[in-house]
């Protein structure tokens, strides 16, 4: 693909994301209309008079036509105003700003773990397809997928963090070192369920790559060992997983929500769970928006990456 072609592909993909984003916003906005309960009542409290309620309704713009309310909602979202939590003590945007780094660090460490675990096991498994190692790894992978993440989290806390004292039992850190230490066990719990997916994809990628003509040619040209693996096997084997990027991200995000609750990490996932438990509407709405926009963004990046990595992708 030519440079210009790539540029055009990226541009077109970006344009495609715009209507999707708008529909997402509409959907999240519509949640407000579906949820039982009067939002004005939520603001005013149960003992408010009818006059107070009406005043709040006008203040919140609830007396206006729905489409205009949506336009106002877009305006508020654009300026980062997502309302406050149910108790009114915190802005939702502040909550999101505070939780995002936690979730991002958790996702980053989990990604590293996932890639390392999946890469190592895939190489091992692909060495001799259907060999003993391959089968054993497949069994372990099945366990990894089957173990409930939250349960594994509890077991890691009680069985590893408590006896060794090497990791905090729940909670986050405040310096880079303590943050990383706090992220290890949750990231491990999360990777255990996601790594098998990447491992299976990588394994078949490696097996295919080994069978390919490139590989044979390279071998014939005298390329050996790690160079061969790296340049001719892994590079080609990486293409299918990259196209899985979006799927892996949603899996990781889903897992992060669970793991953050189990380990008490003050990230976006814990906020989401607590908001669902406390029926805190603004927080749910704000977080749904953030999560879905993140997935749209990751899909976008994933598609672009595939286009750049794989010369065979037609654009």
């Amino acid at each position: 693909m030519t440079g210009r072609g790539r540029f055009r592909f990226v541009g077109r993909r970006l344009l495609q994301a715009i209507p999707l984003t708008l529909v997402l916003l509409l959907l999240v906005f519509a949640m407000l209309k579906v949820v039982p309960g009067d939002p004005a009542l939520q603001v005013a409290g149960p003992r408010a008079s009818a006059a107070t309620l009406e005043a709040i309704r006008i203040h919140l713009g609830l007396d206006q036509p729905v489409w205009l309310q949506f336009v106002h909602y877009l305006g508020r979202v654009a300026t980062g105003d997502l309302g406050t939590t149910a108790t009114g003590s915190t802005k939702v945007s502040t909550l999101i700003a505070a939780g995002t780094p936690v979730t991002l660090v958790l996702l980053a460490v989990s990604t590293v773990f996932t890639v390392v675990i999946a890469g190592a096991t895939a190489l091992l498994a692909a060495r001799r397809p259907d060999g003993l190692a391959d089968r054993l790894i497949n069994v372990v992978a099945a366990f990894g997928v089957g173990v409930p993440t939250f349960w594994l989290g509890i077991v890691l806390l009680a069985g590893v963090a408590l006896p060794t004292g090497a990791f905090p039992i729940g909670g986050w850190g405040d310096t880079p070192a303590t943050v990383l230490r706090a992220a290890v066990l949750p990231a491990l719990a999360l990777s255990v369920s996601v790594a098998p997916v990447l491992m299976a994809s990588l394994r078949s990628g490696i097996v295919e790559a080994r069978r390919s003509e490139y590989h044979a040619a390279a071998q014939a040209a005298g390329v050996r060992g790690w160079t061969l693996t790296r340049r001719f096997v892994l590079r080609n084997a990486a293409v299918p997983p990259v196209s899985l990027l979006a799927a892996l991200t949603t899996l990781l995000l889903s897992g992060a929500v669970v793991v953050e609750s189990t380990f008490g990490l003050p990230g976006l996932g814990l906020s989401l769970t607590q908001a669902a438990q406390n029926r805190d509407f603004n927080v749910i709405q704000g977080l749904t928006l953030v999560f879905s926009l993140a997935v749209v963004a990751v899909n976008l990046v994933g598609d672009v990456l595939v286009a750049l990595l794989d010369p065979r992708v037609e654009v």
Binding site: G165, S261, G264, Q277
Partner: peptide, 18 residues
């Protein structure tokens, strides 16, 4: 003061000296 909705986990943190 560390607040956490999870009393069981807090118990573990106490037992772990945290």
């Amino acid at each position: 003061v560390k607040t956490s909705a999870d009393a069981a986990q807090q118990m573990l943190a106490f037992q772990g000296g945290q």
